[in-house]
Design a binder for these strands. Structure first.
Lengths: 344, 344
DNA sequence: CTGAAAGCGCTTACAG
DNA sequence: CTGAAAGCGCTTACAG
């Protein structure tokens, strides 16, 4: 152990340069893999780095170079596996690009989102990927643009002047409705919950249009509790209107899982005398019984797309805004059946 | 819009100081909320900051102050809701402390963990919270200690010279075994999967000791597929030994969910002629049917504890290492019943 | 309470 | 290909 074991004894680029008998500028070039420096010199510098246990100081580099190799990611909720998967996709491509993600949770609250966004700017992120909190104003995005902060919207969009990565929710709804209609269902409910945002509207609209296209009534939209645990006991809400549905499409799989339990508790047979379709196709869909038919939105892929959009945006800040909207896919399993006499 | 709309026109502390007619040092004191500066001066500076749209530059501050207000978090897998919850707890506490988390995924691979840890050091994190990848060497931790990197282990531990936040897995196993034993079960299987690490050993040992304490045989440890989707179809593995179990305790809820489906597929009645206990008590436990009896390990709380340990460590780097091990709790629901004549 | 000076560890032109 | 100098935007003593 070297004698100078006080904290300040950080090994600096100058130390490396001296050890390797080159100037600091040359050492800097070696680090940044510049082709300007000869193979032998490079090897000498690299060995010096190893011997001294040199650690590159991004902070110092960023100050001069105006690049932090850091991207901010803001999600509404880490606890929801759906966002965790999105995050996973983002992290993978950001990491592969040699950058690092700074994570924050907005709690789907615009004030929190404000704070967190400011903190990201203070930390000098090169750009941010965020799932806009419900209620985010266009004005907020325009402010960010004015600040020259490279930005991409994920899952939800507020302004088409900013890059966006999402899935075609409306088309997904169409797939769900078409599947049920082909099984003979006419009275189909739509179970929703959570905050209102673009992805919410797109699903509702998708449902409405698909129903209308089939000549069916789209009036049966029922609101479920936001708390996961309370959904099963709210299943009866589906049957309180004048018309009794024979099937339900869910806003997401969290609702579908809950209703699957709740409908069973009510004595209905999901996949038998009642049909159920989820949305998102989370891992659990395949592991419950009956297996859940669900529309896959592939959040990991959306995350990867969002990260790629940001990377592109960093290299070309002036390019026109882009949208990457992936197709959804209906995974047919066991929770739907042909229309039956409504259970009584 | 100001005429100087080129990127370099970043508002600096000096600009603020000039605007407010104070020195740069004074402006700096205002930012850091020092009591040294008078109320009126402070107000003037704060207004100047607002007028100019000043954004604090952490990068520059850190370079001088040797504090980045940044903590690294390394998890093996973002896609597993269990780690997502851990992360959520960490993020909440770190955020409340005015710091920011830099996130990375080790994929439970020691080489990735190496790379990622180096990258964190390059970014100058003040400390790191990590769930050590399976196979992490003590030597690795010692290296980090030598580098003076404040560290806390979460969920799994390699060295007791480093802070640790986890749950008492062995006690949790005892609760599970005791519950089943009290229902008359004698032949109890233990279903495991995944990589081998301290939390794995603690659960296995906990199971063994609890079984022995009851005079029961702990030999029935069966390995399940690591892939979630393959677990249901592996349920039959439980019944390939000489002794036929009447109950199974699962290493985690992922296995429990899968076996719940698989056992049902096999014609068994979970909670009736076969009993099942999960581990972790994820949100889905309450939403499947029968409701899953599970041992809660409260990952969000573990995350909060880990973050607090790190914060304490930052203020007192020389304090002796600490361990914060939370108690587990058995949530009794519907998946266990009194021993019955083995089905079949 | 405030000001002038030095320095954190890099990168960036600019000469050689 | 290499060296000497300036500077990124802060904070830190040190005087006043």
């Amino acid at each position: 152990m070297p004698s100078e074991d006080r904290k300040k004894s950080r090994v600096t680029l100058l130390d490396v340069a001296r050890r390797a008998n080159v100037s600091r500028a040359t050492a800097s070039l070696v680090i940044r893999k510049s082709p300007l420096v000869g193979a032998e010199t490079r090897a000498r510098v690299e060995e010096a780095m190893r011997e001294l246990g040199y650690v590159y100081n991004m902070g110092a580099a960023r100050l001069r170079a105006e690049r932090s190799h850091t991207v901010g990611v803001i999600v509404p909720n880490l606890t929801n596996p759906f966002f965790a998967e999105l995050l996973s996709g983002i992290e993978a491509v950001i990491d592969a690009a040699g950058m690092v993600v700074i994570l924050a949770n907005s709690g789907d609250l615009v004030e929190r989102q404000d704070t967190v966004m400011r903190r990201m700017r203070e930390h000098g992120v090169d750009g941010v990927i965020f799932c806009p909190a419900a209620g985010t104003e266009r004005q907020f995005l325009h402010q960010l643009i004015e600040w020259h902060l490279p930005l991409v919207q994920a899952l939800r969009h507020i302004s088409d002047e900013v890059d966006y990565a999402g899935a075609d929710y409306a088309a997904g709804m169409r797939q769900a409705v078409d599947h049920l209609a082909s099984l003979g269902h006419k009275s189909i409910a739509f179970a929703v919950h959570g905050p209102i945002h673009s992805a919410y509207h797109e699903r509702i609209e998708g449902f409405r249009e698909a129903m209308h296209a089939r000549g069916l009534d789209s009036g049966l939209i029922v609101r479920m509790p936001n708390q996961t645990a309370q959904i099963p006991s709210a299943a009866h809400l589906l049957f309180e209107g004048v018309e009794r549905p024979t099937a339900v499409i869910c806003f997401n799989d969290v609702i579908a899982l809950g209703l699957n339990a709740g409908l069973t508790d009510l004595g209905l047979k999901v996949g038998g005398n009642f049909s159920l379709i989820g949305f998102d196709d989370v891992a659990e869909a395949d592991v419950i019984r009956p297996r859940l038919t669900s529309v896959s939105t592939a959040p990991v892929t959306i995350g990867e797309n969002a990260a790629r959009l940001l990377l592109d945006r960093l290299t070309d800040p002036l390019a026109p805004p882009r949208r990457v909207v992936t197709e959804t896919q209906l995974h047919i399993r066991q929770s739907c059946g042909p229309i039956a006499v409504p259970a009584g």
